[in-house]
Nucleic acid binder design. Structure first.
Lengths: 193, 193
DNA sequence: TAAAAAATAATACGATTGTCTTAGAATAGG
DNA sequence: CCTATTCTAAGACAATCGTATTATTTTTTA
């Protein structure tokens, strides 16, 4: 089995991941990925049958990235509440990118719901949201919030998405920090009983 | 001065407005607009020099739409708090579209921050957000919240964007209604003192 | 090391993109 | 009514899109 090939495949996915994030899926062409990797445009067909296949691979890659992030949150704290706080604070580590390009899943999702053809990848994208939602619910369960777990998890995701959208539109780092702070206060208030 | 011409121009803008919302700006071609209006593709150049000019016209149209919406909120209620509630409730009137395509300004804005070339229209888009923000601040001023007006206005916008994003991703009408309800509770709580 | 498989390079394909031109039709004002 | 202007129809334009093919080189396996 070729090991060189899968390395090049990964380079394509990495370049596409970055470009889909910074320019958007539909605004990224094969030529763009070719320029960034040095791999000839026509060669992509060897690894991926269609552009949507590349998208699927990128979404899979982001799934892994977010799983790593959640693992990181689990390692950073032992208690469920502290882990939730770690999750909420994560955008601060990506402040520059967040302010420039928004949320890696939120913005891609917003773009893809408008594509009628890419239904397959759309379901994959909600899978990323579900990954986060399930993890949040897991922490809430440990805090005895199993009843309203689904609602609170969605609320938390909505709050984070909203903060990121506005911070992105106004390129307002201060608002991002304050917004995340407010979410943490809300978390403490909601989960103390 | 020709009156027929400006009518056709308006038809182009209307079709583009709908298509940009339902499919996205970059996923809408001149051919799409041509198909929807029956106006030959090559004819657009008579009214608009570039595609971005059409975008600018669409953004202007949405500015007017949102101004109308704000006027509608002003007519619906006499007090500033009630007017804010009217604004918050507005997405419920567009429930179907919101669930399908998201927010008309939020989603377009998310798409355009990623375009490096369309800076001009990007500033126009923040103008739509500013329109809302200024109106909200205006109501807050009347409620004696002039000090934290900017912060609260951004918070309100963020909350609405977040709710709409999640409701859109999960196509969850119930969450949309509950989320808006929660925003109203938050409004009452924040502005009562 | 020889045969098989995997990977690379380069290019061609039809379709579509946004842009632009031009000839003619409709409509206006004098 | 005639001229000038505004508008419409149709299509050409180069560039780029995603896709596909083929010949060749590299790597793996036996």
């Amino acid at each position: 089995m070729g090991t060189k090939g899968s390395a090049n495949r990964q380079r394509i996915v990495d370049a596409a991941d970055y470009l889909f994030y910074s320019r958007g899926y539909n605004q990224t062409s094969f030529s763009d990925i070719s320029d960034k990797t040095g791999i000839p445009r026509g060669n992509f067909y060897y690894y991926f049958k269609t552009k949507e296949d590349i998208l699927a691979a990128v979404v899979d890659a982001r799934l892994i990235e977010f799983k790593d992030m959640l693992k990181c949150c689990e390692n950073a704290a032992s208690g469920p509440l502290e882990r939730l706080h770690a999750l909420v604070q994560f955008p601060l580590q990506r402040e520059t990118q967040i302010l420039q390009y928004g949320c890696p899943i939120g913005s891609l999702s917003s773009e893809l719901v408008k594509d009628q053809d890419t239904e397959i990848s759309q379901t994959r994208l909600t899978a990323v949201f579900d990954l986060l939602k399930n993890w949040i619910e897991e922490q809430l369960n440990k805090l005895g919030q199993s009843a309203r777990g689904d609602d609170i998890a969605k609320d938390l995701l909505a709050k984070m998405q909203g903060i990121i959208i506005i911070a992105n539109v106004y390129r307002d780092a201060e608002f991002l920090r304050r917004g995340i702070n407010d979410i943490q206060s809300w978390l403490n208030q909601t989960l103390s009983h």
